[in-house]
Structure formats: structure tokens, C-alpha cells
Amino acid sequence: MDNKTLTERLSKDLDVSVEEVESLIEGFAKVIGECALNLDSVTLPAFGAFEPKKRLERVAVHPATGTKLLVPPKIVLSFRPATALKQKIRNGK
């Protein structure tokens, strides 16, 4: 499903304009991003949780040149689906 179908369907379901839905999605992404920046996880019922994860710094070897690199630490945003959703996706095949 692409972005356009999603926004159109949401605007129909919520009875608001497509622009408003777009601004809502934008705000949603912003809020999730801000929460993740503070290392807060956001849990949504029957859907899953958006969890920020800290990745520690590490030493990696450049495969081509053989030089050692110190890769800096970072925070990545990951999604952990709720158990029910996970099971449905698992058996959805």
C-alpha cells in the first residue's frame, strides 16, 4: 500500500481532508521521533511498540583496505509488533 491510498482511505474513514491527514501523519512521525530521541518507547494497543535502541560504538574492519574503523554509537528506531499482530502476520501466508 502506498502513501496516497493510505491518506485517501484515512480521510474517508475520519471524514477529514487529505491535507489534514497528511499533517496528522507528519505530526505523528514528529512525535514518535521526539519520543525516541528521549529514549521513550511508544506502545500502541493491538499494533506494537516503537522502541529506540542504543547501539554501542564498535571497531569494524574495512573489508577493502583492511583499516580498522571506530564506528560511533547511535540510536535506531525499531518497531516491535504486538503478539497478536505478529501471529497474524506469521500465519497470514
Partner: peptide, 24 residues
Amino acid sequence: FIRQFTSIISEELEAGENVRIKGF
């Protein structure tokens, strides 16, 4: 919005569709 948004995404995923959301 949040309720509808998540339910649509779950439906699509269950149906075996990838979902792409602009800016997210």
C-alpha cells in the same frame, strides 16, 4: 486517527502488503 491509522496498517500487513508512509 491513531486507532484508524494502526488498524489500516495491520490489515494491510496481514493481507501481505508492504506499507509505505511518507515522512515516517
